[in-house]
């Protein structure tokens, strides 16, 4: 059971990292990214291919930078067009990554994937203690990314991204370099998705293309919608509750013996869908509202009504 719990925590951590990244790109900056699974796959393959040669930390940095660079290129290519084209381009990107991973066997192992990916701190891990180490590693990684993104969201950088999301024309009329801001937000998000992929690869130590389906993208959007666009805390709650729901409903089979596995898996997704619809009706702003800077933070004695 404890192995299952570790799996659960890692699953939630990966989903949280992916969600945090999408929350920056789409939640805060309004940039739709339907190619999330492609970036995660790229991050995973990045560490899987390089880690045996250069070590896990340089490999992670490489993966993050690779994803950031590709995000920048995609953003520059498509943000210059009408805004919705980014959505189309990212769908295409996700497909391209999947097909490349399947077919460039010399590099990616094709459908067989890559096995024996070295884990972080493998050399100093006591035998049998692997789960504890990867667990701590995952939690530390999520915490680090969360703090960094929270600093960004609550800074003037976060505010100007919200302005760009609300009305890019107004933002540029106020002298804000809209294109550069969008490219940066997209690149940072891409880097974090790469880190999520790296964590995924380190935990499983074996990856193949079938692990990176578009459902990753769907879960990330669900987490952002449920948690509240723009709020990182809400995102953690959203990602956590969606993963918890997905996993908890596994045990429905024990309670209701009349449904079989296939029916159950369809039911589980349906329940998540109903949950999101209900949440949007009852609490359209998501679980946690976007953080705002109050005048009273600067003028504690002011009477400005809230």
């Amino acid at each position: 059971m404890s192995a299952y719990l570790v799996t659960l925590v890692i699953l939630v951590s990966v989903a949280a990292l992916v969600g945090l990244a999408l929350n920056l790109q789409w939640g805060l900056a309004g940039l739709v990214n339907f190619g999330v699974s492609g970036f995660v796959a790229l991050g995973a393959y990045g560490v899987a291919i390089t880690a045996p040669h250069i070590g896990w930390l340089p490999a992670m940095i490489f993966s993050a930078l690779l994803c950031a660079a590709i995000s920048m290129a995609l953003a520059l290519l498509s943000i210059r067009l009408e805004e919705n084209y980014l959505a189309i381009v990212t769908i295409g990107f996700g497909e391209i990554v999947r097909i490349l991973l399947l077919n460039e066997g010399w590099l990616t192992g094709g459908a067989l994937g890559i096995a024996d990916i070295p884990r972080p701190f493998a050399a100093i891990t006591p035998p049998g203690g692997g789960d504890g180490v990867i667990l701590a590693f995952a939690i530390a990684l999520v915490a680090l990314v969360f703090v960094l993104l929270e600093l960004l969201v609550r800074s003037p950088f976060g505010r100007v991204l919200r302005a760009v999301r609300d009305d890019a024309t107004v933002a540029s009329a106020l002298g804000k370099p809209v294109l550069a801001l969008r490219v940066r937000a997209f690149a940072v998000g891409g880097a974090v998705m790469g880190l999520a992929g790296a964590l995924h690869a380190f935990y499983l130590t074996y990856i193949d293309p079938s692990q990176f389906t578009p459902i990753i993208t769907a879960y990330a959007f669900m987490a952002v919608i449920a948690g509240g666009r723009g709020s990182n805390l809400g995102l953690l709650l959203g990602a956590g509750s969606i993963m918890a729901l997905l996993e908890a409903t596994r045990f429905l089979k024990d309670l209701v013996p009349s449904i079989d596995g296939a029916q159950l898996s369809a039911l589980r997704l349906g329940m998540i869908g109903i949950g999101i619809v209900l949440l949007l009706i009852l609490r359209p702003q998501g679980l946690v509202a976007e953080p705002r800077r109050r005048a009273t933070e600067f003028f504690p004695n002011a009477k400005g009504e809230g």
Binding site: R159, R162, A163, G175, R292, R293, R294
Partner: peptide, 17 residues
């Protein structure tokens, strides 16, 4: 074209170059 998800105060804090 106010920036609707920003507060009145945030609208102003946004502006300085």
């Amino acid at each position: 074209r106010e920036l609707s998800s920003l507060t009145v105060f945030e609208n102003l804090l946004l502006a300085p170059p």
